[in-house]
Design a protein around this nucleic acid. Structure first.
Length: 488
RNA sequence: GGCGGGUUGGCGGAGAGGUUACGCACCGGAUUGCAAAUCCGUGAAGACCGGUUCGAUUCCGGUACCCGCCUCCA
């Protein structure tokens, strides 16, 4: 029996995933606040949970997994962006500007994450479409004595929920002791957090029992996960930086409003991303978006490969060297699998992923598959000291399994842009000329003409292979057919 | 100040209390007009200090350094 084991942040141990309903495994992942292009760090959870999504679909069936990832389109940063536009003379209303900004950002997000080979979640709810459920949930919390109204705000009463702090391993008292926050005077407890806040006329707002206002940051995920997945579901994911306060507050809200449910069974958090050993920040000048990398010619698949090379629970350092290495590996694999159709993924790859999404180990298995494929092809094509009879599997079987395994990781998929393919060019002319030049040089021992042509071919991005068998020209990474014109 | 994560060979990066991780690079050899590609092979590690153990890089404690959260944040 297949068993997926995942590290649960709440209990701090690896647990077996036992879906509440194996015909509908449910996962909720906190999505982006849509006010700007996604930076590289935003992409890590997308790739991590996309890989988990693919594994779940493989194990339970593609139709038996529901993956929800929200868009937060209620946020002061979006408001600020819209207000700035309005101040600069844009005639549209604030609501229109906000909606336009959100729509535009969601479009960018989809395009950028698609490029990383991430499947779209089954559901991508927008917070603004769930204001009514949020208000209903807040009313329930007030009715049950877990929230209170004060000066137009509604606050969650952390002292009413004894388990508050369990997820992040903090106690309310400790947090207050080390708090650096200015405490609003209307709070009963400094750690109480906002469920609803009032909106002035210059801000978007919705009518509520507490006047025109807007929801606090955390209530949206509680309301949307409940609406779409129910009071109990299997996996809740997000970046480790969301563990507190966002996820802690989600638990408090959801468990107090719906004590009949268990909310999320397993909590998963991915660690942060560093760039060349440092935190990504605008002040350090190492802040960049996914789109920046794509525009620089770094294929999305390379970004994905680099992400998968580090376990999700460890800090991951983005470096140019890693990207170059990933690109070389992928280029090698793509070259070996041209025209191959996938079969079923390798057991060891599946087992690796089932062990708390050990993507690094899975990639290691892919390397092993490549080596075997390489060896088998040699035997099949050229003969080899190894006896053919010793081959357990023909190359066609291995390559099909190799491709299926890579695709389980979201690599080498049909959807992925075939960035490694090279422009087509008829190389028979140059090949024949070089062969002739070489034959002459062999006789005269003057290789200057051969070396000159070779240098020109290399400059055009070709790999020049000369052996007893003859001359072979292989297009490389930077192959430019136009540069061959000068050779004619 | 409180909480959490990390520290492995030149670089990246795993698993496992005792047996070669692996990839890339490097070096030696084969091959080549020279290369490239390919093949064969060698070497190299576990931040530091203690403890447990027959034996620890792997478990426990402490120290140092790095990163994150506690305020918007994936």
């Amino acid at each position: 029996m297949v068993e997926i084991r995942l590290h649960d942040s709440r209990t701090r141990r690896k647990v077996a995933l036992a879906p509440l309903d194996p015909t509908n495994v449910r996962m909720y992942v906190c999505g982006p606040t849509v006010y700007d292009r996604a930076h590289l760090g935003n992409a890590r959870p997308v790739v991590v949970f996309d890989t988990l999504y693919r594994l779940l679909r493989h194990v339970y069936g593609a139709d038996h997994v529901t993956y929800v990832r929200n868009f937060t389109d209620v946020d002061d940063k979006i408001n600020a962006a819209a207000q700035a536009l309005k101040a600069s003379g844009d005639p549209r209303s604030l609501e229109e500007l906000i909606a336009a900004r959100s729509d535009e950002t969601i479009g960018w997000y989809h395009a950028d994450m698609d490029a990383l080979g991430a499947l779209r979640p089954d559901l991508e709810p927008r917070a603004t479409a769930y204001i009514a459920p949020m208000i209903a949930m807040i009313e329930t919390l007030i009715a049950r004595g877990h929230a209170y109204e004060a000066e137009g705000h509604v606050l969650f009463d952390v002292r009413s929920y004894p388990a508050y702090g369990a997820l992040s391993g903090r106690s309310v008292d400790d947090m207050i002791a080390g708090a650096r926050v200015e405490v609003a005077p209307y709070k009963r407890d400094p750690m109480d957090f906002v469920l609803w806040k009032p909106s002035g006329p210059d801000l978007p707002g919705w009518d509520s029992p507490w006047g025109r206002g807007r929801p606090g940051w955390h209530i949206e995920c509680s309301a949307m996960s409940h609406e779409l997945l129910g009071p109990s579901f299997d996996i809740h994911g997000g970046g480790i930086d969301l563990q507190f306060p966002h996820h802690e507050n989600e638990i408090a809200q959801s468990c107090c409003a719906h004590p009949e449910g268990g909310f999320a069974g397993i909590w998963m958090h991915n660690e942060m991303l560093l760039v060349e050993g440092k935190k990504m920040s605008k002040s350090l000048g190492n802040f960049f978006t996914v789109r920046d990398l794509l525009d620089q010619g770094v294929p999305g698949e390379v970004i994905r490969f680099v992400f998968l090379s580090t376990h999700y629970s460890k800090p991951m350092d983005w470096t140019a060297e890693k990207a170059a290495q990933a690109e070389a590996t992928l280029r090698k694999w793509r070259g070996a699998l041209t025209g191959v159709a996938p079969s079923a993924p390798d057991d060891m790859v599946v087992v690796s992923l089932e062990d708390d999404l050990n993507t690094h180990n899975a990639i290691r298995q892919l390397h092993g598959l490549y080596d075997r494929l390489d060896l088998v092809r040699k035997v099949e094509n050229y003969g080899h000291p190894l006896d053919r009879a010793q081959l357990v599997e023909p190359g066609a079987v291995i390559e099909a399994r190799f491709l299926a395994s890579a695709q389980l990781l979201g690599l080498l998929t049909p959807d992925m842009v075939d960035w490694a393919s090279v422009p087509f060019a008829d190389l028979s002319g140059p090949t024949a000329r070089l062969t002739a030049l070489r034959a002459d040089a062999m006789a005269t021992k003057d290789f200057s003409a051969v070396d000159a042509m070779k240098a020109a071919l290399v400059a055009a991005g070709l790999e020049v292979r000369m052996s007893k068998a003859g001359v072979e020209l292989v297009p490389g990474a930077g192959f430019d057919p136009a540069k061959l014109e000068s050779l004619k």
